[in-house]
Design a protein around this nucleic acid. Structure first.
Lengths: 111, 111
DNA sequence: CTCGCTATTCGGTGTTGCTAGGTACTAGTA
DNA sequence: TACTAGTACCTAGCAACACCGAATAGCGAG
């Protein structure tokens, strides 16, 4: 896509991934593929893996290794209680930002 | 506010400021005050000024100096044609992202 | 046995917002 | 005079995050 998306993803990609994990456990490769499917056509693989490491270190997810038939073992991440709480905080922040922007788009800044 | 907002602002703050300038010309100090009014309570002044320098260097805005009665002269920025085009591109990108997130929030990832 | 797909990891880069100051001009006040 | 506060702008160094490119590793097909 472009630089605009890249910059906007900072801060939101993390929430997106957490939201995915909120729905069901998943592993890196799978998440990357899903994101590309959703239109984030040029998400870098490395980006997703780095993000997963971060949220694991922050204790937002649990991990378990699952053998794969076609390749190295998968690291399957699932959202834990702390991650759930963080995700809710993310949605609140997102709502705040989205409301401000929607208002700006419709009305312009109130004079 | 918090780190979450800070990270989310990366990539969107620029669009926000351009949108403000799309409504009317404005200067840095004024924009900062307006943002704080809108709930972005701890936007740093330096952030806004640095951003304005960037968008000026990219040729998205026109600038003129206007004397002030109570302080140094103001640098009043206004959106030019190139900035207008960029702003529209920003809105398209924003819409894309917002749609994906809204979908995620409501449905969860489709299994 | 090499090619392609699955799956993860890592080092270095660029952009961006923040911190924490500084400069400069005006007006009010002790 | 000296100080304080409000207006208005600028800068250097920092941290976080997404990107790029490459490497590693296992498996099946040709």
């Amino acid at each position: 896509m472009g630089k605009l998306v890249t910059e906007m993803l900072k801060g939101t990609l993390e929430g997106i991934v957490l939201a995915v994990l909120g729905g069901r456990p998943a592993y890196g490769y799978e998440i990357t593929a899903w994101l590309r499917d959703q239109g984030f056509s040029d998400i870098a693989e490395g980006t997703v893996y780095a993000l997963l490491v971060r949220i694991e270190q922050r204790g937002l997810v649990d991990v378990r290794k699952v053998p794969s038939e076609k390749g190295p073992p998968r690291k399957v991440y699932s959202l834990n209680a702390q991650g759930q709480a963080y995700l809710e905080e993310f949605w609140r922040t997102w709502s705040f930002l989205a409301e401000r922007l929607e208002q700006l788009r419709e009305e312009g800044p109130q004079t």
